[in-house]
C-alpha cells in the first residue's frame, strides 16, 4: 500500500470510528430512560475516546518519533485546562452548595 492510500485509509478509519462513537453517545439517550448515571458515563467516555480518535487520525498526534517535546505542548495544555476548568467547577460548585 503506498503512502497516499495509507493516509487516506487513516482518515477513513478516523471518520468511521468517530461516527460509531457519535452514534453510541446519541444512543445512550435511550439508556437514559432507565439509568441516567450510566447514560452520562457512556456519553462522557465516548466523547473522550472520540477526541482521542480525532487527535490520532485527523490531527496525526502520536507518541512516537523524535519531536516528543512538541507533544508536551498539547499535554501541558490539557493540564492547564484541567486546572482552570476543574478549579472553576470546584469553586463555583462549592459556593452554590453553601448558598442552598
Amino acid at each position: 500500500m503506498n503512502e497516499e492510500r495509507y493516509e487516506r485509509f487513516h482518515y477513513i478509519i478516523g471518520a468511521t470510528a468517530s461516527a460509531i462513537l457519535t452514534v453510541l453517545a446519541f444512543g445512550a439517550m435511550i439508556i437514559g430512560e432507565w439509568d441516567r448515571t450510566l447514560a452520562l458515563w457512556v456519553i462522557g467516555v465516548s466523547a473522550v475516546v472520540q477526541i482521542v480518535v480525532q487527535l490520532r487520525f485527523f490531527l496525526h498526534i502520536d507518541f512516537s518519533r523524535q519531536k516528543r517535546e512538541d507533544l508536551l505542548l498539547i499535554l501541558f495544555s490539557l493540564l492547564m485546562l484541567t486546572m482552570l476548568a476543574g478549579g472553576t467547577i470546584w469553586i463555583l460548585g462549592d459556593l452554590s452548595k453553601r448558598m442552598m
Binding site: L79, M83, L95, M99
Partner: peptide, 20 residues
C-alpha cells in the same frame, strides 16, 4: 506552573468552604 493554581487567594473571603 504553580502560578496557575493559586488564583483563589484573591477572594478568600468570598464564602467558599474552608477546604477550598
Amino acid at each position: 506552573v504553580i502560578s496557575f493554581t493559586v488564583w483563589l487567594h484573591h477572594f478568600f473571603t468570598m464564602g467558599q468552604s474552608t477546604s477550598v
